[in-house]
Amino acid sequence: MTLKLALWLLWAGFIAYILLLAPPLHLDETLTLLKNIFTLQWTAINPIILSLFSLVGIWLLIYSSLLFIDGRMQSIPFWPFAIASVSSGILGLLPYLALREPNQQFSGQKDAFLNLLDSRLYGIVLTLSTVVLLVYGFALGDWGDYVQQFQSDRFINGMSLAFCLFYVLFPAVVGDDMARRRFPNAEVFLAVVFVPLLGSLAYLCLRSSLVSSNIREESLDLLHE
C-alpha cells in the first residue's frame, strides 16, 4: 500500500511540476523538433537531444518486455498503458505500476508477441541500439546547448526528468520478473538496479526464458472476465 501511494503521489507530483514549475513550453520549437525527428532531419537537432528522445523510447521497450508478460497475470492488462506511454512517456506508465499487484508467477502459453519480448535477441538489439545512441550523443552532442534547453524549455526538461524516473522506477517491476524466472541472485539484482540503463539491458540479454504452462490458466480466465 505504501508503494502504491508513493507511485500515485509521484504521478500527481510530476504532473504538477510540469504544469506549474517547469520552464515555459515553447510550442513552436517543440513542434519543429518533433517534425525534424519524425521526418529524419536529424542534422538540425542537437545529438544529445535526439539521443535522449530515442533512449526514452528504449526505456519504454525495456518496460514492455517485462510488463506485457506481467499484465497477463493482473486484473488489468498492460496494453492500454503502453499505448498511453507512447505519447506521454512515464505519465502513461505510472498508473499501471500503481494499480498492478505484486506477482511472481506466469501461466498459460506465450504467443508470438510475448515470445519476441521474452527473447534474448530482443535485449541484444536494444543494447546495441543504446550503445550507438550513447556514443552518438556523447561524442557529437553540444552539452552547453543541452543545458540551456533543459533550463529554458519544458519539453526538454520534462523528457530529461522522465528518463531519470524510468531508471528510478525499474526496481518496482524487475524483482517480480526475476522471481518468475527463478533468478533470485541478489548481486545480479543490485547490478540491474544500480547501473543506469545498461544494467537493465544486460538483464534482458542474460535472463532465462519463461516456461509456458497451463497452471492457473482457469483462474487467469476468471480474473479477466
Rank of each mutant, 00 (worst) to 15 (best):
C205S: 09
F166D: 07
I15L: 11
W143A: 08
A12H: 13
R207F: 07
Q104R: 05
P24C: 02
S85A: 12
L50T: 03
Q109E: 14
V173F: 05
L126Y: 06
L210D: 05
V86F: 15
K35M: 08
F113A: 09
I69T: 10
N36G: 06
F138N: 13
W143P: 06
K4I: 03
N157Y: 08
Y122W: 13
S87C: 04
P102D: 05
I49W: 10
F194R: 03
L7V: 05
G144N: 12
L223N: 13
L133D: 03
A6I: 08
A191R: 03
L52W: 09
L25M: 15
P47S: 00
Q151N: 11
A172M: 08
E225Y: 15
A6P: 00
F170W: 03
L121I: 10
L197I: 05
W79Q: 07
D176M: 06
I76C: 04
M1T: 01
W8Y: 13
V168L: 03
F78G: 05
H224L: 12
L201H: 11
L34V: 06
A172G: 01
L128Q: 04
A162K: 01
F53W: 11
V192E: 00
E29L: 15
F14G: 08
I69H: 14
L50I: 01
P80H: 04
L9P: 09
F78Q: 03
S85Q: 04
F113W: 13
D153P: 01
F78D: 02
L220A: 08
A84E: 03
R207V: 05
Y122V: 00
T130R: 00
P102F: 00
L61D: 07
L220Q: 14
Q149W: 15
N214H: 15
P47E: 02
S51M: 05
P196N: 02
L20I: 14
H26T: 12
E29D: 15
N115G: 07
L5S: 07
I48P: 02
E218S: 13
F68T: 14
K4A: 08
L67A: 00
L91Q: 00
V125R: 01
L21I: 09
P102A: 00
G92W: 05
Q104C: 01
R100L: 00
I76P: 00
A16W: 13
W59P: 00
H26W: 02
K4P: 11
R182C: 06
V211A: 13
C164F: 12
I90C: 01
L20E: 09
D176Y: 04
Q151F: 15
L223G: 07
R207G: 08
Y203F: 08
L116M: 09
